[in-house]
């Protein structure tokens, strides 16, 4: 489904700020996988998702999605295959546009945009139904500007937009980190509901190890730009937070001691 082969990504090459963010990263994702990703700050988690989405191009390596090599494909061109939800609730939606306009933009992901209406009549019914699933009463506020919604509502809407046209892979970058615990768990259960219902291949970064264990069928841990631990199936189900902490310490000689990972 999705394959990363020998990816290398360095920022600010040739300057004093040179930083190797991904170092020979290899990952093979199967259709329908729900992978949770953990790792300390600066481990390269976000960079990995950005590389998959085409925000950055790698110096070396290949990205293959569903048999298509997209390594050099522009971000907006591979958007047809990728759904994204970001950590910052402001990034996923257009604040000055209303809910239905945002959904209509998402409903045209990967399609050619012409001079037809930006929001078609028939679409409104579809949007209403989808919004109902969120159970947030947004279906009655379709002409409300998204900027007036709460962070949690915006994340739920972004999630809906990312999956309105089924993506080949859904990329979630700490998409509940900016929300209060209660809202976060609501958005997480929505995530699980939507992804399992449509069997969407998903990669979710989280700093919450409990969530990392609880959700998904596979867990990977990153450090220094590569994957240092990869478990799936039964083995993953039986993991405990303690196991993960131990892994961290082993992999990094305790350098995570001050990390916020330990706090969650």
């Amino acid at each position: 489904m999705l394959e990363l082969k020998g990816i290398h990504k360095t920022f600010n090459i040739g300057t004093v700020n040179e930083k190797k963010a991904l170092n020979d990263l290899n990952l093979k994702v199967e259709e329908g996988d729900f992978i949770t990703v953990i790792g300390g700050n600066g481990a390269g988690k976000s960079t990995m998702l950005n590389i998959i989405a085409g925000v950055f191009l790698p110096e070396e390596g290949d990205i293959v999605i569903d048999g298509v090599n997209v390594t050099r494909l522009a971000e907006h061109k591979r958007a047809s295959m990728i759904g994204r939800v970001f950590q910052d609730p402001m990034i996923g939606t257009a604040a000055n546009m209303n809910i239905e306009e945002n959904l209509a933009l998402a409903n045209r992901r990967g399609k050619i945009r012409g001079l037809g209406w930006g929001v078609k009549k028939g679409e409104r019914e579809l949007f209403r139904e989808k919004l109902k699933m969120l159970d947030l009463n947004l279906e009655d506020r379709m002409t409300t500007k998204v900027g007036l919604l709460s962070g949690g509502q915006r994340q739920a809407l972004t999630l809906l937009m990312a999956t309105l046209i089924k993506p080949k892979v859904l990329l979630l970058d700490e998409h509940t980190a900016a929300l209060d615990p209660k809202t976060a768990s609501k958005v997480l259960s929505l995530t699980e509901e939507i992804t399992s219902e449509q069997n969407i291949t998903t990669i979710m970064i989280t700093h919450n190890m409990k969530d990392a264990i609880r959700y998904g069928n596979r867990l990977i841990m990153m450090n220094n730009g590569s994957i240092i631990y990869d478990v799936k199936g039964e083995e993953k189900k039986n993991l405990t937070v303690k196991d993960l902490l131990l892994k961290f310490e082993q992999s990094s000689d305790g350098e995570f001691a001050n990390d916020r990972m330990l706090l969650t």
């Binding site: 971000e75 958007a79 257009a94 546009m97």
Partner: peptide, 18 residues
């Protein structure tokens, strides 16, 4: 609409394939 989205939130616009 794509133009408005671009001016409003370029990251979002790109993620939506604009």
């Amino acid at each position: 609409s794509a133009m408005r989205a671009t001016g409003n939130n370029e990251k979002m616009a790109k993620a939506q394939g604009i």
